[in-house]
Design a protein around this nucleic acid. Structure first.
Lengths: 154, 154
DNA sequence: TATTGTTATACTCTATAACTATA
DNA sequence: TATAGTTATAGAGTATAACAATA
């Protein structure tokens, strides 16, 4: 087990390492993985209610409050009252948020390139295909990133 | 990014899922991933000092105290005073600890089989080979499992 | 004085429950 | 009464610092 780890253990270890490196590479942008999950999901679901977006990312209402607070205070996300139901907020990406999302995607590409630099292009495609098959089989659909929770500083 | 995730994101997501499932499958044995890390490392390093083992797993002296406490109270690990240096403890697996390690390895095999059930044997070998290459390239050698920390109940 | 293992403490993360304002 | 979002609080997880025994 320790000498010749199988793919199950390798997945866990590489997953942790990939997350750690991604987090490190996001740091210069002042972003963390949980912010990325939010921006990506929001880009595909603008105008939906805060808690609806939260369910898509896998965050509860409480976590959403702080995460949206952070991104709103940095001008990446906007809360707009829904006139039809004044209890709920509709969430939108601001232009600055879209810019940041672009930068984050670039970081993601560099990140993946460095992670896979010992594999050929063909091998990277093979790997992606194999992992996708497992993910589909295991019912992994959402964009769940290590859910480091929001900080309490308003 | 959300539509067709690359292997970097897939690694993170599958790694988290694999860890979650492994943890679930260990539960009937009353074990958690951090215990497994300890037993596996200890099997290959019996008689070494507590803090030396700790470094191999990536746990600090404080965490080691609680983790060894847990495993010792369950009769899987034994602390023996080192006559040459009475400050340090040499750690050993008990027979019960070796039995448990065997069961844990079985769980690990079942776990991997279920995780890879949508891949052929050949594909599983391909995947393992590709992941090993990345792990080697990224300098991942140790047996680091999600380091859920020990509980404070003595 | 330095080191092994231990204990105490503070800090962060996370989940849950209580609260407000609208419905 | 129920729901969206918010705030408060308590429990776990984690890192760090202080401590006792031995070297």
């Amino acid at each position: 087990m320790s000498e010749h780890p199988g793919f199950a253990l390798l997945l866990v270890q590489l997953g942790m390492e990939a997350a750690r490196q991604f987090s490190e590479r996001l740091a210069p942008l002042g972003m963390e993985p949980r912010h990325v999950g939010m921006l990506v999901r929001l880009a595909a679901n603008e105008g939906k209610a805060q808690q609806v977006i939260g369910e898509l990312i896998g965050l509860n209402p409480t976590q959403m409050v702080f995460l949206v607070d952070e991104l709103e205070s940095r001008g990446f996300v906007e809360r707009r009252r829904n006139p039809a139901d004044r209890r709920s907020y509709a969430l939108y990406l601001t232009p600055a948020g879209k810019d940041m999302l672009g930068k984050v995607r670039e970081v993601g590409q560099v990140h993946q390139a460095k992670l896979g630099k010992s594999l050929s292009q063909t091998e990277q495609q093979q790997l992606t295909e194999l992992l996708r098959r497992i993910a589909r089989d295991q019912g992994i659909t959402g964009l769940s990133l290590p859910g480091i929770p929001p900080r309490r500083t308003r």
